[in-house]
Amino acid sequence: MIDKTVNQRAWFLVLPVVVLVAFNALIPLMTVVNYSVQETFGNNVFFFEGVKWFEQILNSERFHASLLRQLSFTGIILLIEIPLGVAIALSMPKKGPWVSVCLVLMALPLLIPWNVVGAMWNIFALPDIGLLGRMINGMGFDYNFTQQPLAAWFTTVLMDVWHWTSLVVLLAYAGLSSIPDAYYQAARIDGASAWSVFRFIQLPKLKRVLTIAILLRFMDSFMIYTEPFVLTGGGPGNTTTFLSIDLVKIALGQFDLGPAAAMSLIYFLIILVMSWIFYTLMMRNEEQ
């Protein structure tokens, strides 16, 4: 028999993580769970309500409308940003002094705080004094994002594309530069066309980074709050009231803590499940 020293000291090593996760994830989450099953009155008086708030949220047309808007928004920006990002990454120089220039230019939008982005685009798109707004109106279109739902959507999407396509570009560019030059040579010797090179070499090799890009963009855009809040405030009417804006209205505007907590949890579960589906779908072939 070998004498083994048994002690529990290893727990001290994981303790910081446990404490950290408890304070920044578990405890807040449990607070939300706590609110979601109770009616809250002043003076910290609570009544247990069961799943009433969940039923109410899931059956509310208002929630359905916000969810639909959220899904549409995320779908649109993914459809634009991912192909556009890959296209820009493909057209960027592979070596030489321009590489760093391009990378810095690409990284710039990512460095701007979200509320600044919203404020910038708000002023930029104003129909009377904004550069973009005046230009569009000057071209003969009737454009006013504070009054027309379509214009509001157009501006919000454009703003997000401007802000976040860079992330896709940077990820795709990193993925592209990790492909050994020998692949391109082999393709040239085979006489493969530029499209074949993209379809059969670059795209398969980009699969992993694109999975990450799609996941990041999905989660981020699904939680978007600050920029549309600053740009349109969720309007006109509630045409750009996405889930998080709606949630804040319920939680802090109406101070309906129970429904807001229930909605938070549903919101959280939707993101979790959809991310999992995305990931599983995109990684399916990898594991075969």
């Binding site: 050994p180 020998a182 692949y183 040579q185 082999a186 040239r188 010797i189 085979d190 006489g191 059969f200 070499i201 398969p204 090799k205 072939n285």
Partner: peptide, 20 residues
């Protein structure tokens, strides 16, 4: 042009089409 010549090349890295 390289594709008009009858040459083949094999590299140190194992170069194959990844999803074929």
């Amino acid at each position: 042009a390289v594709q008009k010549r009858k040459v083949a090349m094999v590299y140190q890295q194992f170069i194959n089409y990844p999803n074929f």
